[in-house]
Design a binder for these strands. Structure first.
Length: 482
RNA sequence: CGGGGUGUAGUAUAUCGGUAGUAUCUAUGUUUUGGGAACAUAAGGGCCGGGUUCGAUUCCCGGCACCCCGACCA
């Protein structure tokens, strides 16, 4: 009977089955549910809070640099999608198409957007006439559909939520600088809020966005050593401008094609958050991502219930002045304290505050860190300050340990044997390769590693391809990936 | 689309060719409360179709669904 109990409440250890561990965390924290349509995902309220946080913070950052929101339709006429050759070839295998509506077969099928470049640029071509209309900086929050063969909650779902920014510029240099600027913005967000360190770099020719000139990416390392592409920013060059006839008249009165970027971050980032910080007890949220930052658990019995809960509420309302009404919760449910602890641990709440009759008598309470489990006895007079400090400590410590993990699991390989064994060990492997799609394919077949990116600081390095021995410029990171 | 696995209550599981058992969850009540409480009562189940059989949840065939591993996923 003990055995059954343990099994029911335990989370599969990471070391045993990482994949199952990940699913367990999601279930334990009550983040999502499977939908009747395979591959689609229901995001439950506690999970959606994370998405709302991402939305709020990113949206404010976008607006700070002059990017405003708009909305474009979900249905795209098929002829628009097919306009840019590489784009349609890249996406064709995974688009869902509406062929019937209103009880009739449609004359022209409508594609459920896998991404919105085409429909947005069809509009842009009429919005842009002169250099005075540039740059045009627009973002949209939307859902997109990609019919992937294999899905995983948050990491790759058939339908997912994201933001996609689409900008238009007068020169390629300006567009490129903007694409990189957005990547830096993402990096800052991931560092300061999600506590996820990333490697910034450029995608290889075969991994870049279909239709882009260059794709820049933030790659993060998960706890099993696999890479996750957490967001991308594309310099689209003038490819789409030419396909959609987006032209402007410059200061010399001559007509020119415009230069564009697009960039996005999706609900996949939540998957990255889960896999970066969580432990075998459940989810761990960085304080800057947690709506609920402190949960207060009064320790009571029948006699002390009223007085202890009163005191707990009093402290809580003091804290709410600092952390917001939704930032502090007093859990007065009629359950044993231990049960509550486990529940909030599974949900990743950064700090738990235990307060019982003995504490009150001593004018103190017990502050417990979710990340380390450390218990800190705190005078009631210093609670708010101590919590503020502890939240900062947790935030920093989560980032630092993730960074440390990433650094210590990133290695260089100079021979093929080194390379194979490092990939086998789940490392990020820095190595030269000749840049050809064939070599990439070959390496993937033999080791299941893919080119994650060419880190910006490696672009100039020269050497010989790890596989073919051909001359190579720009060392890349290889890794297994999600 | 290949390889493997599983279909029994909301969830997790057991047994068995003959009345389907347990835990958990849910509801109600009493007692409890410094790390997953106890007792009592109640409600709730065999994926679908066919075959073998006196009798199938069990065995066989087919379908369907789901899970895992690959392929695929710029």
């Amino acid at each position: 009977m003990e055995q059954v109990k343990a099994n029911e409440k335990a989370i599969t250890p990471r070391a045993t089955d990482y994949s199952q561990w990940y699913l367990d965390i999601i279930a334990a924290a009550d983040l999502s549910d499977y939908s009747p349509v395979k591959g689609c995902m229901v995001i439950k309220p506690y999970g959606y809070q994370l998405w709302e946080r991402i939305q709020n913070v990113l949206d404010a950052k976008f607006k700070d640099i002059g990017v405003n929101n708009a909305y474009f339709p979900m249905l795209i006429p098929e002829r628009l999608l097919t306009r840019e050759k590489e784009h349609v070839e890249g996406f064709a295998p995974e688009v869902a198409v509406v062929t019937h509506a209103g009880g009739e077969k449609l004359e022209e099928p409508l594609v459920l957007r896998p991404t919105s470049e085409t429909i947005i640029y069809e509009m842009y071509k009429d919005w842009i006439r002169s250099y005075r209309d540039l740059p045009l900086l627009i973002n949209q929050w939307a859902n997109v559909i990609r019919w992937e063969k294999r899905t995983r909650p948050f990491l790759r779902t058939t339908e997912f939520l994201w933001q996609e920014g689409h900008t238009v510029h007068a020169t390629n240099a300006e567009a490129d600088a903007f694409a990189k600027k957005m990547l830096d913005l993402y990096e800052g967000f991931l560092r300061d809020y999600m506590a996820i360190p990333v490697v910034k770099g450029m995608k290889s020719e075969s991994e870049k966005f279909a239709g882009a000139l260059y794709t820049y990416t933030c790659e993060a390392m998960m706890q099993d050593g696999k890479a996750l592409q957490i967001c991308t920013s594309h310099n689209l060059g003038d490819h789409f401008a030419k396909a959609f006839d987006i032209k402007f008249v410059d200061e010399q009165s001559s007509s020119q094609y415009a230069w564009q970027t697009s960039w996005g971050m999706s609900t996949r980032a939540i998957g990255g958050l889960i896999m970066t910080h969580s432990d075998d007890k459940g989810l761990v949220l960085p304080p800057n991502m947690a709506t609920l930052k402190v949960v207060v658990v009064p320790i009571v019995n029948v006699d002390t219930k009223q007085s202890v809960e009163e005191k707990a509420n009093e402290i809580a309302s003091e804290m709410q002045k600092e952390f917001g009404v939704r930032g502090v919760h007093v859990d007065t449910r009629d359950m044993r304290p231990g049960e509550k602890y486990f529940e909030w641990e599974k949900k990743g709440v950064p700090i738990r505050l235990e307060i019982g009759p003995k504490d009150i008598a001593n004018g103190q309470c017990v502050l417990v860190r979710r990340d380390t489990g450390e218990k800190i006895v705190t005078p009631l007079t210093d609670v708010v300050t101590n919590i503020q400090n502890t939240l900062k400590l947790i935030q920093d410590s989560l980032y630092n340990s993730a960074l440390e993990r990433q650094n210590s699991n990133t290695v260089e390989a100079n021979t093929w044997d080194e390379f194979v064994s490092a990939i086998e060990d789940g490392k990020f492997v820095l190595a030269h390769y000749d840049g050809s799609a064939e070599t990439e394919k070959l390496i993937k077949t033999e080791t299941s590693a893919t080119v994650r990116c060419i880190p910006f600081n490696e672009v100039a390095s020269e050497g010989l391809c790890i596989k073919t021995g051909a001359p190579s410029k720009g060392r890349v990171i290889f890794a297994k990936n999600y």
